[in-house]
Simulated scan of single mutants.
Amino acid sequence: MSLLFALPEAPSVPITGEDTRFPVRRIFCVGRNYEAHARELGNTVDREAPIWFTKAPAALCHSGTAIPYPPGTANCHYEMEFAAAIGAPAFRIAPEAAMDVVLGYACGLDMTRRDLQNAAKNKGYPWDTAKDFENAAVIAPITRAAAFGPIATQRIALSQNGAVKQNASLAEMIWSLPELIADLSRMYHLAPGDLIYTGTPAGVGPVAAGDILEGTVEGLEPVRLTIGPAE
């Protein structure tokens, strides 16, 4: 039996210093993982469990890309994130063993249609369209975990047109990466190809056509994005 039409190949991310690439299976994102960011948007921090949402692999966008200003919004925001690439299966894994399934890390941007998100939140609706859209999951090349070393106090920052907008430490995450992996593995069979975006620090803000964004985490390749005119 033949397929009615062909689908694009699965998106993939380069691995620094290698000819191999990381094929992307799923993208998981956690919200409100930095207390100052939750406060700046008028939200409280839920310390009982992480808040999860997803982006489709079709939302993946490579660092260095120029994208059109996203459709359907007049208030698109940048959110700089530390992303983890899963390289081994994990189901109901303990936090103490969770780092064994991490292949590497990358700088990422969680682009957000903030006006759509706020409207949905005010009505108690899901906010999928605010988070899951084309070019909404920007990512830089992946650095192997062994080359990055332990997650500690590395700085995570973002500049917009050369002006620093976000500047924090990975130590400020409310839920650590082992805790995030363990929690997510209670609900999903994690597998190689899964990406986890671990939340954004305070300082998020709107983008406009002509903006150049650069996000950094100490020890990783930066993520860069240029915003073009709307289509």
Rank of each mutant, 00 (worst) to 15 (best):
R32Y: 14
F91H: 15
A90V: 09
P70W: 10
R21M: 07
A56M: 08
R21Y: 09
E48R: 14
C61N: 11
T73A: 09
R32A: 13
F91Y: 14
L60H: 10
R92I: 02
D19V: 12
T20I: 13
A58E: 12
A83M: 11
A36P: 05
T44A: 15
I67F: 00
I93F: 05
P57I: 02
V30T: 09
D46L: 10
T44G: 13
N43P: 08
A83T: 13
G31F: 07
A88F: 13
T65H: 14
Y69S: 06
E40L: 04
R47D: 10
C76Q: 03
R26P: 01
G87E: 06
R26Q: 13
P23L: 12
E40Y: 08
I51K: 14
G31A: 15
R47G: 07
Y34K: 05
E35G: 05
A36W: 11
Y34N: 04
C76T: 04
P70V: 07
P50Y: 05
A66I: 12
V45Y: 07
P23M: 11
F91L: 10
T65M: 15
K55P: 03
Y69V: 02
A49E: 14
A38I: 07
Y34H: 08
P70L: 10
G42D: 09
T44L: 10
R39E: 12
P68D: 14
R25E: 06
H37W: 09
P68S: 11
F91G: 05
G64I: 07
E18M: 11
F28P: 00
H62R: 10
H77R: 01
N43D: 14
C61Q: 13
H77Y: 12
C29P: 03
T54N: 06
C61R: 05
I93Q: 08
I51S: 15
P23C: 11
A49W: 07
W52R: 02
F91V: 05
A38R: 11
F53W: 15
T54S: 08
L41A: 06
N75P: 00
K55I: 01
T65E: 15
A59M: 05
L60S: 06
E79R: 02
P23Y: 12
P70G: 10
R25V: 02
A85C: 08
R26N: 13
V45D: 05
T44E: 15
P71C: 12
A38Q: 11
A58N: 12
P89H: 12
I67W: 00
P71T: 14
R21I: 04
T44P: 01
F22S: 03
E40K: 04
